[in-house]
């Protein structure tokens, strides 16, 4: 029992060590990867531009449901005029970064992990090494960078569309006064709050991209292994996002 526990703990620590080494190896290749921006741009396209539709759709509906629920809740206290500030703060500081990161892990993280995992399974990574082409420079680092750049931008788009959704339901449908809505929002949201959302987006971007490329890179070179790597990417990204979210909030609040 005790032995099993120490083994489990040892495995967990070893996994953290391995992923840290992996991150350092990526970071050492980042300057070289940036010298060839074509690869990075291609990955921003894959991770960011192709996630745009899902991010915008979900942002709109999260905002709209926030408008409905927020209105219903605030109306019980007779303060539905604070809908703007309540919904905007919730979106900017929590919902936007977290939901965008979860969607990103599902949409882009899985694609990254399975792509790299398949490269491993079909010996493409080994072939690169034989040709003296560093797979970190040409495969891993550009994908990591693409994700890190894309997620903060996706987060901002998610929040902006979300606020539009709140406005759509709250002002257009439920009849909160437009000027009150915006002036209450402006009165309570500070630039620092937006920056906190942006910082969260950046941190989640690093975490989700790192987990995705790591799981893909260390995947077992079988069809089953690639499938497992994809699953682990989503699960680990979601757990990591929520843990980091708590930590950042505790530090920055």
């Amino acid at each position: 029992m005790f032995k099993a526990l120490t083994k489990l703990l040892g495995n967990a620590v070893a996994a953290f060590g391995a992923i840290t080494w992996f991150l350092l190896r990526i970071l050492s290749q980042v300057p070289r990867a940036l010298l060839r921006p074509g690869l990075v741009i291609h990955q921003i396209h894959n991770a960011g531009a192709l996630s745009l539709v899902i991010i915008m759709t979900c942002g709109l509906f999260v905002g709209m449901v926030l408008g409905l629920q927020g209105y219903d809740m605030l109306e019980r206290f007779g303060s539905e005029s604070s809908l703007g500030s309540a919904a905007a703060l919730a979106l900017v500081k929590e919902l936007g970064p977290v939901v965008a990161a979860l969607l990103f892990a599902g949409r882009a993280g899985t694609a990254l992990a399975s792509e790299i995992g398949l490269m491993r399974a079909t010996d493409q990574l080994v072939a690169m090494e034989i040709m003296a082409v560093d797979p970190f420079r040409h495969v891993v680092a550009p994908r990591f960078l693409g994700g890190v750049i894309a997620l903060p931008l996706l987060t901002m788009i998610f929040i902006a569309i979300g606020i539009f959704g709140v406005q759509l339901v709250g002002v257009q449908q439920l009849g909160v006064d437009q000027g009150t809505f915006w002036s209450q929002m402006r009165g309570s949201v500070e630039v620092d709050d937006v920056m906190q959302g942006l910082i969260k987006g950046c941190v989640f971007g690093v975490a989700c991209s790192l987990i995705a490329v790591y799981e893909g890179y260390v995947a077992e070179p079988t069809a089953e292994g690639v499938g497992r790597a994809t699953t682990r990417t989503v699960v680990n990204s979601a757990v990591m996002t929520l843990i980091l979210d708590y930590m950042i909030t505790a530090v920055m609040l």
Binding site: A49, L153, R186
Partner: peptide, 23 residues
């Protein structure tokens, strides 16, 4: 497409900073 996406992202950030904060 990537350029449009990045510009869109920065436009969203600009909107958030200028439109929903204390202005």
């Amino acid at each position: 497409v990537t350029g449009a996406f990045v510009l869109f992202g920065f436009a969203a950030l600009f909107f958030l900073v200028t439109q929903i904060t204390n202005k």
